[in-house]
Amino acid sequence: MLDECVDGNHFTRLGLDPLQPYDHDAAERAYLELSRALHPDFHGAADAALQERALRNSALLNEAWRTLEDDQHRAEYLLELHDPGVLDRHKKLSPQFLMEAMEVSEELDDARTSGCQETVRRIAETARQEIDERMKGVADACTATIKRIARDEPGRRESRPAQLLSPHDWNTEQIAVLLHQARVYRRILKDTEHIG
């Protein structure tokens, strides 16, 4: 039990299929159960090396949980699993998108100065919509890819359900851009909370 946690990725650590829709309840059950097995509290009597391992594995498990519980972090992690470095390679956002985001940001600054709560609330709502739209885009791309594979290559996923896709299966660049854009709006949303 101690070392199962080290191999694989954050999804498999919690017994999840990376490409299925995220099941919060199943993830939480697995997380709590594994915590009981791995947590240093229950390995106090073990030798130093084992205690050290309990500490590391427990930290890794907590990292897995923290990553998966956040929609943005989970999507970014999934993408990087398939295509390491893709987020870094596609950091540059289109001038058009940046312009739009900047306008929203400036409007928020003005609302902050004038203390207009109504505008702040409206911007927060817009930011939420923009984020949701992009996260839906990511989820749709994922679902469409899996459907296509099921149709074109029957048996490929069924034989190894938790296996990752290859970067060629889908457009990871496009997803990276969506995730970067979502991040920008996340920051704006956070700023609205600081003011409100």
């Binding site: 240093p40 500490l55 590391r56 427990s58 930290a59 890794l60 907590n62 990292e63 949980w65 923290r66």
Partner: peptide, 12 residues
Amino acid sequence: KLVTRNSTVPAR
């Protein structure tokens, strides 16, 4: 920030 506040410990 490497470990953000309210992260469950142990954390790495």
